[in-house]
Write a protein that binds this DNA or RNA. Sequence first.
DNA 1: GTTTGCGTTTGAGCGCGCTCGAAGCCGTAG
DNA 2: CTACGGCTTCGAGCGCGCTCAAACGCAAAC
Lengths: 180, 180
Amino acid sequence: MATDDLMTRALETLGDDGPLSVEAIHRLTDLAEVPESMTIAEVADLLDLSPHTLRYYERAGLVEVARDSNGHRVYDAEAVRRLVFLTRMRLSGMPMRDLQHYISLVDAGEHTVPERLDMLVEHRDTTRRRIRELTLSLMAIEYKIATYGGSTGQDVAALDTATGADRTFRTALVHARSAS
Amino acid sequence: MATDDLMTRALETLGDDGPLSVEAIHRLTDLAEVPESMTIAEVADLLDLSPHTLRYYERAGLVEVARDSNGHRVYDAEAVRRLVFLTRMRLSGMPMRDLQHYISLVDAGEHTVPERLDMLVEHRDTTRRRIRELTLSLMAIEYKIATYGGSTGQDVAALDTATGADRTFRTALVHARSAS
DNA sequence: GTTTGCGTTTGAGCGCGCTCGAAGCCGTAG
DNA sequence: CTACGGCTTCGAGCGCGCTCAAACGCAAAC
């Protein structure tokens, strides 16, 4: 799958309704300025998580963070980049356990690259499955909204009789979870 | 958004790689035969969750289930349909709390339809956001796989220099979480 | 000089969604 | 007759990912 293809699809997906890309533009400066060092509050703000969580990640062994003369954390650029990565992985549903393993591989050296790639590929596939699962659920929700009749089973009933929906699709809706 | 449009998009999404739709076809008979009554094991099998979980849902007030002469649960078609709905909502991330509220609205009568629709619309939007979020994470993962350099920050660095990627897209990748 | 504010550590607690264990009932198979 | 499998109830336990409380340090502001 070509990169350009990826981006095209991404932008199409984003194009549905504006807020994300608008906000993205608004935050355009963020990564351009990756400061040499940041405080915990700054990193928390950047990544949209709490200082508590950042300390928790450190305790969990996901990052090492230096201290200043007051014992306060000083996040260097590498730590911030790692946290950006970790945050994205967390957001896409990778468990802490796996991240801990991944980081242990990173720290173990270059010879672990193949295993790291294996992990990324597996997580990519998991994420793809999850997106398809959510897409099917989304369609079911939209269908239920469109045909709302009050009963929790109405959507299925509607699918049985309406618009000559194709059977495969209908079944896929009901069994979206079978993709997981 | 027209129904046909929805289905078209759905099938496109599914078309990427086969397993789901194939499995869907394989299970095609499932909903066609919605039996008059089912045992807990049958329902568990149908919905791909455990009998434990089904009992838990009942305890949580999400379904009422009759008993036979032995005290065993007998799921009628309505209960099964409700559970299909509930399972899809759970799968798409709706919290138990919200489902309990939704079901209380269903049980309260037709005058709660507007509020139910509000809930569905909100959940639809949440699901859409989640899909966009996951899509961005997915692109980041794919990018990292494609440009793998071993460092956790490599993907970002690559984005800064590679293929003349447009800045908005690049920033969106880093800030996918800002959509949540 | 005290207050305010932001940081530190440690260990405990929490919300969620299951998941399981124990003890018991029932119907069928060997 | 007894053993087994599958169901029942009830309450407890668990894994995950935070989230917080307590007690303290330091530094700039008033």
